[in-house]
Nucleic acid binder design. Sequence first.
DNA 1: GGGCCGTTCTGCTGGTAGCAGAACGGCCCT
DNA 2: AGGGCCGTTCTGCTACCAGCAGAACGGCCC
Lengths: 112, 112
Amino acid sequence: MAEILDFKRTPEPLWREALGRKLRETREERGDRLVDVAERAGISVQYLSEIERGRKEPSSEMIAAVTGALGVDLADLLIGIAGQVRHHHPARSHFHTSRPTGRPSGPVLMAA
Amino acid sequence: MAEILDFKRTPEPLWREALGRKLRETREERGDRLVDVAERAGISVQYLSEIERGRKEPSSEMIAAVTGALGVDLADLLIGIAGQVRHHHPARSHFHTSRPTGRPSGPVLMAA
DNA sequence: GGGCCGTTCTGCTGGTAGCAGAACGGCCCT
DNA sequence: AGGGCCGTTCTGCTACCAGCAGAACGGCCC
């Protein structure tokens, strides 16, 4: 699926792209080569390359293996990615983009 | 019968599990039903249910569709997930688990 | 009882994750 | 020039799972 879309402009970067960018940044900060991380994570080097460039969609187990090989935990990684995404994303987040098709659907819980 | 292989334990929650938890929380805070979000996102109800329970691995496009239907952006979602993961995670950021196989790998670049 | 609603389970199929193997271009050596 | 390194990108190939339709389940109201 998803091949007939000619110009699917993504309003914000896709998850796999932001993830890959951050993984590469982390690896390069450590001074590691692709083969180093790939071996430690137990995956192939060409596949790690594709992950880092956002071309393939890694499973959760893959993400855990790579982050483990990089010595970071999931929470740190997510915060780092969020920072990158925000920066890419000049739109102010405090305009509630909510209510996409306006369906409050009954009892609107008041969230804290 | 699957008791022998209990050593599969993941030290920290998997990405898909943390993601699903946060998506369900966000939906419930909005007071939406599964069918509401699924229709807006253009996916099946059963599948959204599976995503929220962390049983299936959604693609980046799926994540974008669901977050769009929930009216949140990726950065906010990631930060929320990071908070949940951290909470689950009894502060073991002391010892850097880094250097898993201790391989500075030849010419040690000096990272900035 | 029966009907409605929300969630979860049971298949099924097309797509793709993930690998091996190799070739390629760029870069730094000598 | 040649030869290692390093990252990328081809061509496959197989096993697995995303994603769906259909229905069952359990609750609640009639």
